[in-house]
Nucleic acid binder design. Structure first.
Lengths: 161, 161
DNA sequence: CATAATTGTTTCATCATATAACAATATATC
DNA sequence: GATATATTGTTATATGATGAAACAATTATG
């Protein structure tokens, strides 16, 4: 029992007014919807672990390259260093990561996983693989995923410079 | 003068610890970054018109299919109807769109563009085309854009059902 | 040495989004 | 047809993500 109420001001011949885009052909819109969908799955996947996307990314980076300072990691992830503080506080409070005072620069902190954090990252990685596998299935295979990553990379990587 | 402070707990042979994903191979992450980049360009494009993505989408939908009610449009866009109210208030206050009381259902509102709104949408569409063209350039041509839209669609369109 | 820049931090404002409740109206059920 | 249930638009409110500004401690630069 839904349906529009009236119907009005159309173009001359058909029913499509001028060159107004359909939502499905707007790259930004479709990107956004897809991102929301993927994050939805991600968030549900990590609900039990109480891990949010930003926390996942920080742990992954620390695990792969320990010893970096906050600003470095924040910048890599496009997070303002001011907002990184609370994020890191949370990871430290949970005993997953820690700040060590860097010897060379007394201002900065060197970020590391705790032993528990390392075990956590192992589980996290496994959960992530399932999530990623689910996406691959939807996309229609690993090649499709690779193609998507490539296209997204073209948007991100700066052409000049 | 940057650089990590120390370096620790690696895996056996190389330097990569276990199977921890690199950020660049995480679909969700790259999707997010790409979406932010595209929105950045979009927002800058429409800064002078003081138009935000959500407003753009609402105007585009009303322009293409006038007469729909709020809940219908909100649902199409994945916006909670509660949050749609203020959005529509803004468009109405600016004289771009209007609520007409639907004759058939006294609860609902039939949404339409004003004449000024129609002119606004024309300009908006033109600005959007430039934005989209910029993306196409980055992607490497219209075929790449089509491919991207297709892949994103695979994530969005529900397989079963 | 004096000045400027960096690092981590706190505080604050803004925006997007979700939930719950409500009145008015419409629909369904008996 | 009366009563219960659902829908529509709305308000109020909570939460999370994000950005800007300022600050002390420290380091780099002229």
């Amino acid at each position: 029992m839904a349906g529009s109420t009236d119907g009005e001001k159309r173009n001359h011949t058909s029913g499509v007014p001028a060159g107004i885009p359909e939502m499905g052909e707007i790259v930004g819109y479709k990107l956004r919807r897809a991102q929301l969908f993927v994050f939805q799955d991600f968030i549900e996947s990590f609900a039990k672990m109480k891990l949010r996307p930003a926390e996942f990314s920080v742990l992954a980076i620390i695990a792969r390259t320990p010893g970096q300072k906050q600003t470095e990691i924040a910048e890599q992830l496009g997070i303002k260093r001011a907002n990184f503080v609370a994020l890191m506080d949370g990871l430290e409070r949970r005993g997953l990561a820690e700040r060590r005072k860097a010897a060379t620069d007394k201002r900065s902190h060197s970020l590391h996983l705790t032993p528990e954090g390392a075990r956590f990252v192992d589980k996290m990685t496994s959960v992530w693989r399932n999530h990623e596998e689910r996406l691959i299935e939807r996309l229609g295979g690993p090649e499709a995923r690779a193609a998507l990553l490539d296209l997204l990379g073209r948007l991100l990587d700066d052409p000049e410079r």
